[in-house]
Amino acid sequence: MNNNVIEVKNLTKTFGDFTAVNAITFEVKKGEIFGFLGANGAGKTTAMKMLIGISKPTSGKAQVAGFDVFTHAEDVKQSIGYMSQKFALYDDLTVKENITFFGGIYGLSRKRIEEKRCELVEDLGLKDIVNQLVGALPLGWKQKIAFSVSLLHDPKIVFLDEPTGGVDPITRRQFWEMIYKAAHQGTTVFVTTHYMDEAEYCDRVSIMVNGKIEALDTPKKLKEQFRAENMNDVFLKLARSPSPTLTNGNEVNTDKN
């Protein structure tokens, strides 16, 4: 049986003359924490938007949770969770109301929402703030709640778009613990980031440069391959190199066409 929850083949997106995503190919295994790295403008957000069904691919194939993103976008949507860079919750609703609302649009029963809410309140220690407006909460709280909300309907895969932007290191660390926990429970985590230290936390990372995936492997192997001390160096070497011919016979899945 196929153990891949995301299969992408030659996925391409062009805007006029500009190729934002250039024939990328990769797979993500079930339960994996997959880091999707790249500089701003490298095309990672565009690629992710195609996978979550809010942007139509120009060509290529992509399957998410076993469904084709071209033809079965609606099925894909029910199987995935998504958290945007803005930790988008409704500021003028309370924590409780946000949970009820987002549970509702995913079709959860009232009872299930109630259960989930109690679980969340317990896990995150939300007891004192559950009836507060989200707008009044610090960013770190919003981030944690937004992540939990994206997991409300028990998606197979959760997509996180730069989930740690603007929060302090301690909160980032706590947040990654939440990610580990979700992955441990079997949820596949697809995360974009430009914090290279976070790349170290991922099972595997891909690095996009100018619309192409130029490197894809475990952080350990990538560091060996690029003879770098940390992921930051890997990234800098890749980003500075003018051509993708860096690979040297290693089993690195670079993009060929």
Binding site: I54, E74, Y82, S84, A88
Partner: peptide
């Protein structure tokens, strides 16, 4: 950014 979340939802 909530519009995005809504569009990703079913």
């Amino acid at each position: 950014g909530t519009m995005e979340i809504l569009l990703v939802s079913p």
